[in-house]
């Protein structure tokens, strides 16, 4: 039922090194004119044609929602990953033609919040750049706490401090003055919503602290850009399409399904949103659930899988696709 959206053809207008590990890419529409408007915290899915493999990685849109002649993303290079960020860093040059998806927002502003408390770790700063533009324009109270290793390794902190003054506080891990999450959380007024984006352990730590202080789940928001795990290659049978598909070591199950021209819905491609949930019709082996969506009971039942990040080991897997 869900239709994969038309991708937008773009040209890489600019590639700017921001820190030793982070580059910023600016895309302009090939057709000219304006790109679709977006909301603070939205992401786009960038299509990368890497030989025979088509990767689709989500990146936060970090420009202003009011300047739509281009989209900007920042990519941190991760050496030991399956290659998306390395591809962006080493292969993509100004002038290249690429394709991006229309914007999707799974980390949207809580318009009914009385205050936004934003916690960023490293490259996790990216969704907050556009969020803060909107919050500021809407005159909604916010406070950003940004954890970086040291002054050279944290992208954009100087710009943000300049723009927002005391509403942006930078915590430098190497200086020994990390962020005291508990001290921060106990001071927040009623109706504050907490947004955290950064490495998995940071998100988990912040959530554990917040829950321990009695924060309700409704007020906790996170976004993790989790690249699909790599793993042993396997085969999968798609029952409704009558196809057998091979999933390579550096390819996700969803990417392999897409490469076989089978329509599969998705949004986040990071195991969080639940949109790609797929029925497992037969499984002789072990499902490797890497998502954050299915409940423990659902995992134990083995009737569902999230193909964007999860994998399989064993003799045969049959999916309802």
């Amino acid at each position: 039922m869900a239709v994969r959206p038309q991708s937008i053809k773009v040209r890489v207008a600019e590639v700017v090194p921001v820190t030793p590990l982070v580059k910023r890419f600016r895309f302009v529409p090939l057709a000219g004119g304006l790109l679709p408007a977006f909301s603070g915290g939205a992401h786009t899915v960038v299509e990368m044609h890497d030989g025979a493999v088509v990767r689709r990685n989500p990146y936060s849109l970090m420009g202003s929602p009011d300047e739509l002649d281009s989209y900007q993303i920042s990519v941190r290079k991760v050496e030991d990953s399956r290659g998306g960020s390395v591809f962006m860093h080493e292969r993509v040059k100004a002038g290249d033609e690429m394709a991006v998806s229309p914007p999707v927002n799974l980390f949207a502003i809580a318009w009914d919040a009385r205050k936004h408390l934003l916690l960023a770790g490293g490259i996790g700063i990216t969704p907050f750049v556009s969020q803060m533009i909107q919050l500021d324009r809407s005159e909604m109270p916010f406070e950003l706490h940004y954890c970086i290793r040291n002054d050279d390794r944290g992208p954009y902190w100087r710009d943000l401090q300049q723009r927002y003054g005391r509403r942006v506080q930078v915590h430098r891990a190497e200086s020994g003055l990390g962020m005291d999450v508990e001290a921060l959380l106990v001071m927040q007024p009623l109706g504050t919503h907490l947004f955290v984006c950064g490495p998995g352990p940071m998100i988990e730590g912040v959530y554990a602290t917040a829950r321990g202080l009695g924060w309700p789940e409704e007020n906790l928001h996170s976004e993790r850009f989790q690249a699909p795990a790599t793993g042993a290659a396997f085969d999968v049978v798609l029952r409704r399409s009558s196809k057998r598909v091979h999933v390579g070591t550096h390819e996700s199950l969803l990417e392999a399904i897409e490469a076989a021209d089978v329509e599969a819905p998705y949004l986040c491609r990071g195991g969080a949103c639940g949109q790609c949930e797929t029925g497992v019709l037969a499984c002789d082996g072990r499902l490797i659930h890497n998502d954050h969506y299915l409940s423990a009971e659902e995992r134990a039942a083995g009737r569902k899988i999230m193909p964007c990040v999860s994998r399989f080991e064993g003799r045969e897997l049959v999916l309802d696709l």
Partner: peptide, 11 residues
């Protein structure tokens, strides 16, 4: 509901 929540800008 599940369908509507994934409706995208421009679609």
């Amino acid at each position: 509901l599940k369908y509507l929540m994934q409706v995208r800008v421009g679609s």
